[in-house]
């Protein structure tokens, strides 16, 4: 599949270290990958250009004692960069191996289906559309342990999203394939869910996607194979997780919890003496903050050997 959007790639030693989608007039760009912090340089070149100092001549200055100083005179040559080809030329002539590529590789395709999940004619609601797009991007980012968004393109069908990138790492793709393969047969690995953050997050993203009201199924086309994840498989996983968590109850008393952090995810650490991460709801997290430095009783369930989910927090 070809995209008209050009991708600037900077390489070192045959490794692509920087990738960005850049508009032809270089007014807009979005970074897809940046291993060596090239982004500030690209931004500087686009906004300010580059100034070179070129030795043009030497001016003789004769002092009173007759000695002579040859003063070097430099001319400043300013280069403005207002097009992608100018940017590419500048980088190439200044020792940066770079290319502008337009070919994208597809990581996977998601086809969502349901009553109002249709593309074209504004059938799908903007909010559902946004959830599906974000889910597809998040799945790719979690699998790749990357914070950069892939390229998502919509196609007319039930609601089809192609997730593509300039370079695809096969490992995350295989990882995702394994997950959707499990989900398509209503199975999932409790052990991986407990111990592999990537696995757990991916499952959670797919579970969350089914917040879309009329979403019946998600079909994943990966590596030439198709896997259908249905709403009832998600319900099964939800029940499995709940029953497993209920069967691993924990009740601990913690004196003087040492650290509270990660407000965004509502988790904090306690030491018994080993560190345990306590995940909880927003309201219980706030309660824990109030009880900080006091002895508290936490009851909940083990999510993994080092993580518990607290469903009650009390002050002793």
């Amino acid at each position: 599949m070809s995209h008209p959007t050009p991708i600037l790639k900077i390489m070192f030693d045959d490794v692509v270290e920087f990738e960005a989608i850049v508009s032809e007039d270089v007014k807009h760009f979005r970074v897809l990958k940046d291993l060596m912090n090239y982004e500030p340089m690209i931004k500087e070149l686009i906004t300010q250009g580059h100034t070179k100092n070129i030795l043009s001549k030497e001016e003789e200055i004769v002092f009173e004692d007759g000695s002579v100083y040859k003063k070097p005179i430099y001319d400043q040559q300013h280069i403005s960069i207002s097009s992608l080809s100018e940017l590419e030329t500048f980088l190439t002539t200044n020792g940066f191996a770079c290319i502008v590529d337009t070919a994208l590789q597809r990581a996977f395709t998601v086809i969502a289906d349901g009553q109002d999940i249709g593309f074209g004619g504004n059938i799908i609601s903007p909010s559902d559309r946004s959830i599906l797009m974000q889910s597809a991007a998040s799945l790719y980012k979690v699998a790749n342990s990357s914070s950069y968004d892939p390229i998502i393109s919509e196609e007319a069908s039930s609601y089809k999203l192609d997730v593509s990138d300039a370079d695809i790492n096969p490992e995350p793709v295989q990882f995702l394939k394994r997950i959707v393969q499990d989900l398509s047969t209503s199975t999932f690995s409790q052990e991986l869910y407990a111990n592999d953050d990537r696995y757990k997050k991916s499952i959670e993203i797919i579970r969350e996607t089914f917040r879309v009201k009329h979403l019946d199924s998600l079909r994943f086309d990966i590596d030439g194979e198709s896997y259908m994840v249905k709403r009832d498989a998600i319900a099964f996983i939800r029940r499995s997780v709940a029953s497993w968590m209920n069967s691993s109850k924990v009740s601990i008393e913690v004196k003087d919890p040492k650290a509270f952090n990660d407000e965004h995810e509502f988790s904090f650490k306690v030491y018994l003496p080993e560190a345990l991460t306590v995940k909880t709801s927003q309201s219980l997290y706030k309660k824990a903050l109030r009880y900080k430095s006091k002895t508290m009783k936490i009851t909940g369930s083990y999510i993994s050997a080092k993580t518990i989910y607290a469903d009650s927090i009390a002050l002793l």
Partner: peptide, 13 residues
């Protein structure tokens, strides 16, 4: 200029 620093660092690599 950041571009100069990046270039020198790249040459060093």
């Amino acid at each position: 200029q950041i571009a100069d620093e990046q270039r020198i660092f790249r040459e060093f690599r």
